[in-house]
Every structure is written in C-alpha cells, then in structure tokens.
Amino acid sequence: MEAEAAKLIGAGLASIALVGAGIGIGTIFGNYLSGALRNPSAAQGQFANLLLGFALAEATGLFGLVVAFIILFAF
C-alpha cells in the first residue's frame, strides 16, 4: 500500500503545476484588460494574442495534470 500512497502524493505534487498556470492566466488577462481599457480600439486586434497566451499558459497546467493522471493510472 505504500506505493499507492506514494502515487497519490506524486499526483498531488504534479498538480502544483496548476499554480503556475493560474498565475500565468491571471497575468495575461489582467494585462490585457488594463491595456484594453486604455486603448479600446487596439483591444479587438489583440484578442487573438490574448487567447494564444491564455492557451499556452493553460497548456502548462494541463501538462502537470496529465503527469498527475499518468502517475495515478498508468503505473
């Protein structure tokens, strides 16, 4: 049963990656909003870049989640 416990701990540790993703997403949206409030006409053009940044930041968190799932279910 010790391996089982270690798996759970490992999966939990891997989920810490979501902290970084959360910070990244918050930063991206915060900066986008502050920029968009100053220059609303440019906001529309940068919407695609916002989503790209969001996706990349979230992808990092998802990688951590995938690692957690692999630890939990693949071994």
Binding site: L51, L52, F54, A55, L56, A59, L62, F63, V66
Partner: peptide, 21 residues
C-alpha cells in the same frame, strides 16, 4: 466573434497537450 474566440481558447491548450499525449 467573442464566442468563437472562447471556442478557440478552449481548443488550443488541450490540442497542444493532447498532441504530446
């Protein structure tokens, strides 16, 4: 436009990760 943008955002991150998987 906004709705489609959110759709794109939902696509990109998962697409990137799942390609690796």
């Amino acid at each position: 436009q906004r709705g489609r943008g959110i759709g794109y955002a939902l696509r990109m991150s998962l697409d990137m990760v799942l390609a690796v998987v």
